[in-house]
Write a protein that binds this DNA or RNA. Sequence first.
DNA 1: CATGAATGAGGTTTCATTCAT
DNA 2: CATGAATGAAACCTCATTCAT
Lengths: 173, 173, 173, 173
Amino acid sequence: MTEKQEKILKAALNLFAQNGYASTSTSKVAKEAGVSEGLIFRHFENKEGLLKAIMNMAMESSKQLITEVMLAGEPKKVIRKMLELPYQVDRSHYDMWRLTYALKWQMNMYDSSANDALRLILKDAFQQLGYEDPEAEAELVFMFLDGASTAFLLHEPKNKADVLKCIKKKYNV
Amino acid sequence: MTEKQEKILKAALNLFAQNGYASTSTSKVAKEAGVSEGLIFRHFENKEGLLKAIMNMAMESSKQLITEVMLAGEPKKVIRKMLELPYQVDRSHYDMWRLTYALKWQMNMYDSSANDALRLILKDAFQQLGYEDPEAEAELVFMFLDGASTAFLLHEPKNKADVLKCIKKKYNV
Amino acid sequence: MTEKQEKILKAALNLFAQNGYASTSTSKVAKEAGVSEGLIFRHFENKEGLLKAIMNMAMESSKQLITEVMLAGEPKKVIRKMLELPYQVDRSHYDMWRLTYALKWQMNMYDSSANDALRLILKDAFQQLGYEDPEAEAELVFMFLDGASTAFLLHEPKNKADVLKCIKKKYNV
Amino acid sequence: MTEKQEKILKAALNLFAQNGYASTSTSKVAKEAGVSEGLIFRHFENKEGLLKAIMNMAMESSKQLITEVMLAGEPKKVIRKMLELPYQVDRSHYDMWRLTYALKWQMNMYDSSANDALRLILKDAFQQLGYEDPEAEAELVFMFLDGASTAFLLHEPKNKADVLKCIKKKYNV
DNA sequence: CATGAATGAGGTTTCATTCAT
DNA sequence: CATGAATGAAACCTCATTCAT
């Protein structure tokens, strides 16, 4: 990965996240990256290739978070780690997450399978703890995760920490 | 509001919701509405005006849901009504909600003030019920609402009803 | 000529003179006139018909100025009246003259024949006064008229009166 | 300045001069230049940018004529050079001058400051020669220049040369 | 590897004009 | 007589992409 390639990726990530993929022209990306427009196509084939490259980076970085949960072992720890996920994302990754979340609403981009592994683990954890409807509980946690992430990415509530405390107590973790 | 105006609005809502605002050309809207492209501009001034007209409709229809919660009175009822909100939206309004949610991610479109009134009522309800940190509880509910709506609009989980039961139990409502 | 027709003509004259014929849309004319756009076409057939109606008014009003010169009789008086022409136009007619002058530069609009009668009288006057090259003198006066009118319509020099005195002295009139 | 840029400029100058700026579409310019329409915008940003580029060329070429007058020195020579100005313009520059003159009538395009330097020199010349009202004399010459140029550009009178002789005699130059 | 000129398709918008009411 | 909804063509401009250098 050359230096210019990275510049392009960074610029594209930033612009896609702030203004949306469709609203960001390759020429704006080139200008922001300080690079000729043609270079984008040499390295990434086309605009969609650029997006895919970015999403691959995102996948990579989200895998790290996920494996941490997977390796937790005990059910309570699984749940706790899970609830803490939105709090683990570094501010420097916000653009990436903004883009990921925004793209969910762009048709044909939603891929639920990514979460299926986690959902299974979570359900299992609840089952081990004797919850009545482990599947529903797992789904509920996912909804929280989604809602929390959205809140953090969009308007950053002041009482983030309190909310975590609050929900942890509910699950006793 | 002439008949053709409504056709335009309906077509635009549909296309914006399915493919995104930026990716939907006015010519596609015109074609879908069975109308000349120029007519869009006569009635809505420009593409953004068309979007605004749609969002006004959305506001109107969300006000109805909200006032229902506001009129609930008793704290428990407030919370219950609140949690049920995502379940109240008619399938016929999904396009509108998809668009509303998608637009949150389009820069400068997020308006948190819309929820402030509800947030206040909710916090008050939790306070009356003696919750330790009513503000965090309110925030948490909002996160659930957001996450649930997202799930419903994007992949419609099979166990919607169970999830509701599950969370209601947590709040004892 | 109904009241609305006059409103249209006045609005069109004003806008054509200020912004140019090509740059003025019929919708702007209608708005300025406080009239529906369709009415313009009912009364004037098309945009060019509107222009023609205006130019006819202009012709009419310029004929008045010209006949005054023609009736002057004595050569010196002819020349004096001629030189005074640009000073005779009422400020309320400036729009019309601006438009007339501007249109000269719009291809196929220049009609030199309009001036031929005047040119002949002028040449005759110079001949009677024994000028060496009456034709060139007549042409020269026309150039002055054109230049002076242009100056008055475009930037209104402060020493208009002095210039008239100055040139009158040259012709001893 | 690439070859195609020049082609665009030449085509635009020609069409703007013949048919007017507002009446000339960028697509006509592109066709006349044998170039894709997009290229116009890549090189000149927008239609107005194209016009500005042309006017800059015009400025450049008019500066040359003007400096010649400025370097004349003796008052009589200044005046003579001045009067001869409209006769100096090469036929190949007519389009440019037609456009320049036509644009004066397009609102907000008139820039009298360009002539101020010349006006000053001219006034000075008349002063040195003891004319009674040098300012009015200067203005008068400008009017002649404007009228003569207009005549040359619009209908090319047959007795151009005679007119020059005629006016030179009046100023004894 | 890198540039930037060049393109053609398509985007939003404006316009002159028609027509039902 | 008068309106204003409706249209289709054309206006200006942007875009993703290609290619010669």
